[in-house]
Design a protein around this nucleic acid. Structure first.
Lengths: 102, 102
DNA sequence: GCTGACTGTAAACATATACTTACACCTGAC
DNA sequence: GTCAGGTGTAAGTATATGTTTACAGTCAGC
């Protein structure tokens, strides 16, 4: 994990609506329209948040087969665990610099 | 810790320049001008980042006495440890909702 | 073929964040 | 008194994020 990637995950997590999305999906994974209803959020807005969380690999998605050709996009929370301390950050940034100099 | 506070800390941490600031201060705490030089960053920009990190209580500051009336503002990293997992987020959001309903 | 329940995206706008340039001030050393 | 080295902020601009409204499409059931 490099600093850019950590920053991406942290800034994706650093928003109350997105924390609520993760909590809701973790409690019960579901598809977009249902999630929008649960959270009282418009679908387009939810899509944007979902895309950002998925880009940070904090959630994942797949198509759920309903009928023969009817599908629904299902989202769920990826397993993750971040431990953030000043020392971890120092370590990460130092690695970055070694990589640059080599 | 409530969700708003966690989001504040995470979004403050979710930026490469700010991760570099924390790493640099953790390695050796210092005053603003010196830090700006170390990071190759303009002072006003650095102030903005420092203010945000301090608001999130990830760094702290105090005046360093130099001469009789000469002072320099010194910054250092606050001790912190964040452990972020889906379950922790669920727990946090649920607490929030109990608080609202009571 | 119309309706309801979905999936997705485009465009527009408001607000927040990142970043620069420019200013005003203080102090110690020469 | 002027210079170097500090502190801090105001104002402007560019870019990113958050949010809404509006559109276009698919499928199942009546």
């Amino acid at each position: 994990m490099d600093a850019a990637r950590l920053a991406q995950m942290l800034s994706a997590l650093g928003s109350e609506p997105r924390l609520r999305i993760i909590a809701s999906l973790k409690t019960e994974s579901t598809h977009v329209s249902e999630l929008a209803r649960r959270l009282g959020m418009s679908r387009p807005l939810l899509y944007q948040h979902l895309n950002r969380l998925e880009a940070a690999r904090l959630i994942e998605s797949g198509l759920e087969q309903l009928g023969e050709s009817r599908v629904r996009k299902h989202y769920w929370v990826a397993p993750f665990r971040l431990e953030i301390t000043p020392d971890h950050i120092v370590h990460l940034i130092n690695q970055e610099q070694e990589r640059e100099s080599s």
